[in-house]
Amino acid sequence: MQSALVVVIMSFIVFSGVFLVGDPVEILVSDDADQEEREMMIKSMGLDKPFLVQYGIFISKAIKGDLGDSFVFQEPALLLILDRMPATMELAIVALLIAIIFGIPLGVWAGLKPESLASKSIMTGSILGFSLPTFWVGIMMILLFAVMLGWLPSTGRGDVQIILGMPISIFSWDGFSHVLMPAVNLALFKLSMVIRLARAGTREVLHQDYIKFARAKGLKETRIILIHVMKNILIPVVTVLGLEFGGLVAFSVVTETVFAWPGMGKLLIDSIGLLDRPIIVAYLMIIVFLFVLINLLVDICYSILDPRVRLQDIKS
């Protein structure tokens, strides 16, 4: 219910925001078109009507799943974006996995031995990951690994395989080598975040009485860390990461542009250049939708991980 309201409000903000940005007619209509052609064009795109009427038409169509046709491609905007979505999702998911697989062990390690040199280097690295701009790191990676060393390709998706009706790169070596650099680039920020969360969580949990009690039971240190500590820090890490997954998709705009990754972020940037309103609106709506969906999924994961939440759910 609440989620539906969020979607509606966001649709209005998005629509009016795009409305204010600029007039697409100037870009789309060729200079030598006469007044009549110009007017016809405006009419066919529905741009002659007042703002609120345009919004009304947009909403009534949107409910039926029609987010308008692209001005440029003359195709449904939604389809154009959904077509590009698997590429972006693949990139975001691989980035998320990188952040989890490397972030949690590094963060726990840093939390266990806060004074050691290794853990101090990890923390310094995570500050860099936070503060260096994604596009700059991306360009540097291309310079180093593609141009100078020639190890990895710098653009495109490489070989794709159709899996469950979607083109996926990661399952072929060529595709994987194409995903690797953009995914790492996209992951850096989240990786730093996971490291910090895992470290803070570990340090806090380690001082709890129940860890000492686990030691008093004579458990091995590995079991204490892998079960007793890990299960507790997974709660904040999963929550935050889940919520940030939407951000990962949104941020992929930059990475996709740098690595010419044919995902929906790149489509967005191209469309902004052309002021292709329906695509911009459709993209933003999809992102809003995604965020709402992710919130729901995170709530579910959270209750699986934390028994205290589960009980309340059953009660209510």
């Binding site: 009485d209 129940y210 000492k212 007793h228 507790n232 205290r308």
Partner: peptide, 25 residues
């Protein structure tokens, strides 16, 4: 010490609210 703890010597802690791990059965 680990070998001895829990088998030969065990301890009951002061604060029962804090001694059990909240996320494990």
């Amino acid at each position: 010490m680990r070998e001895l703890r829990g088998v030969n010597i065990s301890m009951i802690f002061q604060d029962p609210m804090m001694t059990l791990n909240p996320v494990l059965r």
